[in-house]
């Protein structure tokens, strides 16, 4: 499968580059529209770059106006919506859930991988079986529960079900099977308590899996949409995806504003991805490993 001839290799690059451009074009379009001068947002044919960049040089006399117009979408967004609030809500909920999941799933995964106790297999298979059940099945019962517990329109309604997700238990268990039991026994012989063994031996060894689980949890919670849109009604409590949906409902045709909102929501995930790319890749390939 090695390509030796350089014409083939050039063709490969061309095909890949063209496809990559097509793939990234919509994302580019978010930012390009967000920064487009309002007069050019709707033009035939569409302007491929924010025209402010050009006009800045061709119309030096009105530069400050051009800068203002370029960022007017963000200006309007920050001025007339709760976007910072939504941003904060999404951020803190994602962090709380991620930290919680890391604790809970590492402990549970450790017990399932390294402890031999009655009921272990039953619990493990119960967890795996529920992973096969699509989330839509539990929407209605969860909704009724949340209502009965008085959690409707609170962030608890998001945090508690998110903390219950079991994919991480499965992932941590699979990873911890590869930790040699001798290390744990050695710690025990040295007189370390159960908790100390866990905290000083197991957790450091599980760091790569923790990084992967943390990143995927953060991403899923940050992007989650279906459940938040069901349980949140109060604009102050919205997360970013829910806020964006209502923004769109209220400004169906104001694309500069909509794309400014989309850009604000997209940037954090893009940065997280760039910083932790290798963990994303590792995480995906762990998911494919068969038991």
């Amino acid at each position: 499968m090695r390509i030796k001839h350089s014409p083939t290799r050039w063709l490969t690059y061309v095909v890949l580059l063209v496809w990559a451009v097509i793939s990234l074009l919509p994302l580019y379009w978010v930012f390009s529209t967000a920064l487009q001068l309002p007069d050019y947002v709707e033009s035939e044919p569409p302007k491929m770059i924010p025209m402010g960049i050009i006009e800045y040089f061709t119309h030096p006399e009105s530069r400050s106006q051009i800068v203002t117009d370029t960022f007017s979408g963000f200006q309007q967004l920050f001025h007339s919506t709760n976007i910072w609030r939504w941003f904060f809500n999404s951020g803190y909920i994602s962090i709380v859930v991620t930290v919680g999941i890391l604790f809970l799933d590492t402990m549970a995964g450790y017990a399932l991988a390294k402890k031999d106790f009655p009921g272990r297999n039953l619990i493990f298979w119960l967890i795996v079986a529920t992973m096969m059940v699509p989330g839509q099945i539990t929407l209605v019962p969860l909704f009724i529960m949340v209502q009965k517990f008085g959690l409707m329109n609170t962030h608890w309604a998001l945090i508690l079900p998110d903390l219950s997700m079991v994919f991480g238990v499965f992932l941590m268990r699979q990873y911890m099977l590869s930790i040699p039991s001798d290390l744990l026994d050695a710690a025990k012989i040295d007189g370390a308590s159960e908790w100390k063994t866990f905290w000083t031996v197991v957790v450091p060894l599980a760091k790569p899996a923790l990084a992967t689980l943390g990143i995927f949890t953060f991403m899923n919670v940050w992007n989650s949409f279906l459940w938040p849109i069901i349980v949140l009604n109060d604009a102050d409590l919205y997360t970013l995806p829910v806020g964006l949906k209502t923004l769109q409902d209220q400004n169906l045709a104001i694309f500069k504003l909509l794309m400014s909102g989309a850009a604000v929501a997209a940037v954090p995930m893009i940065l997280v991805f760039m910083a932790f790319q290798r963990y994303f890749i590792k995480g995906l390939t762990v998911g494919g490993v068969k038991e």
Binding site: L16, W19, A20, S23, L24, P26, L27, W29, V30, T33, M219, W222, N223, F225, L240, P241, L244, K245, Q248, F255, L258, M259, G261, A262, A265, A266, M269, I270, V272, F273, M274, Q277, F280, I281
Partner: peptide, 23 residues
């Protein structure tokens, strides 16, 4: 290329849907 093709996957479907409605 791995990065370029994976990047849209980390973006929320809400954002992707919003921009495609515009596209």
């Amino acid at each position: 290329f791995r990065g370029a093709f994976y990047l849209p996957t980390v973006t929320s479907m809400v954002i992707i849907a919003m921009v495609w409605r515009w596209v």
